[in-house]
Each structure stands twice: as C-alpha cells, then as structure tokens.
Amino acid sequence: MAREGRAGPRRRPVEPFLWLLFSGGGMAAAVLVPVLVLLFGVVFPLAGGPPYDHLRAVAAHPLTRVALLGLAVLAFFHWAHRFRFAVEHGLGLGRLDRLIAPLCYGAALAGSAAAAHVLFLTL
C-alpha cells in the first residue's frame, strides 16, 4: 500500500507530541501575540514607548521571563508545524518530509535556545 518515499511508521511516535506543541503554540499566540505586536510594533514606535526603567523591570521579572520563554518555544514549534505542512502540501513536496520536517523543527529548537539565552543569560 505505502508508496515509495513515504515516511511510513517512522512518523508515528513523535507526531502527537509535535501536534501538542503546535496546538499549545496556536493557543498561546492567539491570546498573547496580537496585543504585543500592536503595542511594541505599532503604538510605541508611533506614540513613544514606556520609560526604559519600567520596561526593564517588567521584562526582568521572573514570571515575565518564564512566560516569554513559554510563548517563544510554543510559538516557534507552532510555526515549524504549520510551515512544514504548508511547504509539503502547498508546493507539492510531501516526498521530502524527511528533509523538511527536521529543518523546521530544528529551526524551532534553535529559536527556543536563542530565546532562553536572551531571557535568562543576557537580561
């Protein structure tokens, strides 16, 4: 039945965990991201942002760091999952799943590491 080039049963064990990360990221991003983009991407650049000391105090609070790391990890895996299927289905590259999937989730993993570095080692 299975056609050549298909990933076969290999895809089974990790797929549910990737889907849970994707779903968690979708929910976290839906609730948090629009307001953050609105404020930091549009309103503050046009109308002036909060004073430096206040922003630093908010950002450096342990709860903020944990929340932002959680958002970053989930949002990156959300992107990885959707981008993987958008490329595989949208460009007809499903046979390259063995290549595309590791690249996407690998990028999400690298992004998560970078987020942890920024939030817990530089701040």
């Binding site: 991201v33 953050l36 930091f40 958002l71 970053a72 959300h78 999952h81 959707r82 958008a86």
Partner: peptide, 11 residues
Amino acid sequence: SVFVAWSVVYL
C-alpha cells in the same frame, strides 16, 4: 504562523 514567529523574534 510565519508572522507569529516573526513577532516573537521581534520581541
């Protein structure tokens, strides 16, 4: 999702 990821990178 690309813009979701971009927004987090920007933050």
